[in-house]
Design a protein around this nucleic acid. Structure first.
Lengths: 395, 395
DNA sequence: AGACATTTGGACGAGAGGAACACAAACCCG
DNA sequence: CGGGTTTGTGTTCCTCTCGTCCAAATGTCT
């Protein structure tokens, strides 16, 4: 409500906003009849007709025959987003894998690849080259190379939104590495490219196509080795001044706690990261994916030791989340990434901690649920981010 | 960028947006020449002329003669906001005082009163009646009663934005008290009324007229007995789903800490509230304003005991703030309320803790400074909030 | 099967709003 | 006092949506 609209509107602004509204609806909700567009956008039939006509001319959508639904009246023609009318490239540098996908307008995933990343640190050049290879594979599978309108890159680490400078990525051993530059070189395209943290991307995907659809205020906690957060405030991703927001893994929760790989001590992720779980379950903290799998299997078969380790993780999850909920007063908290499988085992201690620590007013309004898009959420979110300029200004 | 504009624009929307832009500039930056409005809004001279003409007709602004500034060319006529063209009523329920003010369009404070509140709990009816009395005093001082366009109420407590239901106000001993209803009864007006927490209001005031002018991402920490937070994200106040956001006083920072009056333990405010300071300085925690004054006087005269108590407060301030900064990646952190006087004494330990605990990328971008509007910030913010509908839609 | 109600597509004119342009007015400077 | 510059004023033009009228396509009722 309290706004900062860019100034100086004119009739052209109106056109752009209305076109944007139509394109957004089509991208987010798939094929819609013209009359549905009328009710969703609040525009008149005349306006919808003219604007969709323009989109058909731009080959972004196609108008099909009426869909008969048994209601009286002339059937309304169906406006379908054309997946090949605009294509984005989504890339992901995850904690132990790389991924690439092409996604078409409307949200259809056209091609997707994920490859394992060898453990240990890799140089920026190696990663960039590997990503470029994946990119050319998924793009090569498209009929005409695709009308590429944007590239989105999700990174496990702290990355500057504007230019892809990676400030810190502990999993990769990176510090101040110019990922954006390198990637631009090897990709060799001039297509606008946006970078963001994997959790930021994941929550965007969940907002558009997952469990957070329609919610305005959402927190997503993405567990990998550390913990990341993606925040939606008032329907928009919270980025902060440089895109460094959502680093919830490093909120102090235990002033006398363990040292964190960020240099501080007692960060949230020292208590809820995989290392803490493995330590509590009696495994070496660096055990990796296999060790985590082992703990979860033990828990699934009822091992009290594993269950109590997970319960303790849940307790700390609740402590950190309580702070976040008190700060943000969200409608929804999603747990994603590696937290997904642990969810059943952390749930009760987590909720108990929320009951204790969240202010009553906020507590009543918030629900904590698992995310729905699985491991590819950051990749899908990267695609959504890459679509953003098109959705904002389809002309 | 990733937006949720209300849909269905038309030419009327353009007009409203442009009118709103002009009114916003005038309200926020005082008298401006027409040519300044042209450059600030990006509109043409013709458009500015027509739109300001309309505002003059509505008696919201007046056009004065040119201001000669020594530059060549015909001088541009000055557009002045008329403080009596639109007036709001601001009310505040602070921790130990009540206040009321009338503020005119453009931000001029027309009348302002503050009265002490007797310690201990007061009923909602008592407070509402006292506020209504203050309100009629400040309104009575206006020439024609004023063209009242809105009422804003700042409350020390957790209050629902929509209807002024106070979920919790420990200082007043309130829990689920219908302040909004009572106030509407005793005020007897149908003017739209908005409620918010005092810290939310304070940061809005600082954003418009104080130290945060022009900043897009701001955290304000407001110290009273407890600690409140006002958050600005992307130029807009962060409210959450019901206006309960910014309750930073209750983020868990010390899992083995002291019980908090919210029912949890180890909340931030148990470490940085006035109670903690008094305890550390060797005073009874319930000492109130006088005891705090005593501690500060001791510190000002160099007492090591008082200084170390304040330094410890600074350390805990830094710990909590570090989490907030990692979450929000702000440009600016303001310290206000009772923290203002302690600022010189908490500064160094606070900054040291930030250096340790905030991620390097975010740390470089953020500055921590004292707020500038003093004790009346929440009251001024309440006025700004009350002006908001007018600024959004001046028609 | 046919008449009627209902809903939508298509086309055209109306209205609203700002941009662009031309001209006059008011200031500075030499 | 005349030229350069900037701004106010008025007019025309362009863009965009809305409203309305009519035709088309479907369901429903008799």
């Amino acid at each position: 409500m309290i706004g900062r609209d860019e100034l100086g509107h004119r009739s052209e602004t109106v056109r752009r906003a209305n076109l944007s509204a139509i394109v957004r609806e089509l991208h987010g909700s798939g094929p819609l009849s013209r009359s549905e567009l009328v009710t969703r956008t609040g525009l008149t039939r005349s306006a919808i007709r003219a604007l969709t006509g323009e989109l058909v001319g731009g080959e972004l959508v196609s108008e099909g025959p009426a869909a008969l639904d048994g209601t009286p009246g002339r059937p309304s023609s169906l406006v379908c987003p054309d997946p090949h009318g605009a294509v984005v490239l989504a890339l992901e540098i995850a904690v132990d894998s790389l991924a690439a996908a092409t996604v078409g307008f409307g949200g259809e995933v056209l091609e997707i690849i994920r490859v394992d990343l060898p453990p240990g640190r890799s140089s920026v050049d190696d990663i960039a080259t590997a990503l470029a290879e994946l990119a050319s594979t998924v793009r090569g599978a498209l009929p005409n190379g695709g009308a590429l309108v944007g590239i989105g890159v999700a990174v496990v680490g702290i990355v500057r939104r504007s230019d892809g400078m990676v400030s810190m990525a502990p999993n990769l051993g990176w510090r101040d590495e110019p990922l954006g530059e390198r990637l631009a070189e090897v990709l060799g395209t001039t297509v606008p490219t946006t970078f963001a943290n994997e959790a930021d991307m994941a929550v965007l995907a969940e907002l558009r196509r997952g469990a957070a659809r329609g919610a305005d205020d959402v927190i997503l906690i993405w567990g990998s080795i550390g913990v990341g957060g993606g925040l939606i405030v008032d329907g928009r991703p919270l980025t902060g001044v440089a895109g460094y927001s959502g680093e919830v893994g490093h909120i102090p929760v235990n002033p006398d706690g363990l040292p964190c790989r960020c240099g501080s001590i007692g960060c949230w992720e020292t208590e809820v990261g995989t290392g803490a779980l493995l330590r509590r379950a009696g495994y070496p903290p660096e055990g990796g994916r296999e060790a985590i799998d082992a703990v979860l299997r033990e828990a699934e078969s009822g091992s009290p030791h594993a269950l109590s380790a997970l319960a303790e993780t849940g307790r700390w999850l609740g402590i950190g989340l309580a702070g976040l909920i008190n700060i943000l007063n969200p409608r929804l908290v999603l747990l994603g990434g590696r937290l997904l499988r642990s969810y059943p085992f952390v749930r009760s201690t987590l909720e108990a901690e929320l009951d204790r620590r969240v202010l009553r007013a906020s507590r009543h309004l918030v629900r904590v649920v698992p995310a729905t898009l699985g491991i590819d959420a950051p990749l899908l979110g990267a695609a959504e981010l890459a679509f953003e300029p098109l959705l904002t200004d389809p002309a």
